[in-house]
Design a protein around this nucleic acid. Sequence first.
DNA 1: CTTGACCTTCCCATGATGGGAAGGTGTAGC
DNA 2: GCTACACCTTCCCATCATGGGAAGGTCAAG
Lengths: 130, 130
Amino acid sequence: MNIGQAAEASGVSAKMIRYYEQIGLIEPPARSQSGYRVYAEPNVHTLRFVRRARSLGFSVEETAALLALWRDRSRASADVKTLALKHVAELEEKAAALQAMAATLRHLASHCHGDKRPDCPILDTIGSPN
Amino acid sequence: MNIGQAAEASGVSAKMIRYYEQIGLIEPPARSQSGYRVYAEPNVHTLRFVRRARSLGFSVEETAALLALWRDRSRASADVKTLALKHVAELEEKAAALQAMAATLRHLASHCHGDKRPDCPILDTIGSPN
DNA sequence: CTTGACCTTCCCATGATGGGAAGGTGTAGC
DNA sequence: GCTACACCTTCCCATCATGGGAAGGTCAAG
């Protein structure tokens, strides 16, 4: 399987597969005589793991840690759970920060007429000298 | 006022002030004979505006648009409100995405014993072949 | 006049991703 | 066997906003 097929099968773009290899997240695959990367099923499996971890908001570095745990059959599930819950807390913190911004802005907007007049509490507040 | 004082007064780091100037978000300030940037109150006011817009999650580009509206005394408040509400929607979308990740992961974690045994539904799910 | 705090510009790094160029390979159809 | 086209390789560049740091100039206090 060439990189394009592995990309298709895993949902990770060819560009990203090369990048993950370059930074050491995944193992370099076999190469054909002409230098093409050759992927087998286990490689694709790993790529899918990476894609899912990324889609859960884990950074590449965190994904590397998860991958190591995944491959370590003697890991303690407590280690995984700890990592996961710490990540959940970070995600929720970021979500809360975004929602706080949205709430503030929505509040400002609710006081803005939204007509042709220039008067606008949104800009007034953002630009207030205080 | 030198850049350090402007940074202090506005809450924007000196590095960022130079950067904002470089990319054209803010006007180049006056210079002293020796080449130091010299800021007056209106400059600091602008910097504060920028800092607040950024802290509400507006990108630098969006901040530039807001700044233009702020300076345009004949703007229609509708334009500002439209921009703001569009941004609110984006913020809420991002927040929802993060919360969805958190919820998924929290759910997975709730099924993980979190003890010394290796068995772990979190990794099992992320690494499932499907 | 020295010292230390401040300023200048310039370059580099981050994190994850995409775009694209220049050139090699593999294969299908003729 | 040749041509065309899809695919592969590496390499460099861009993004976005921010910080770090080096090399060198300036200013004010002692």
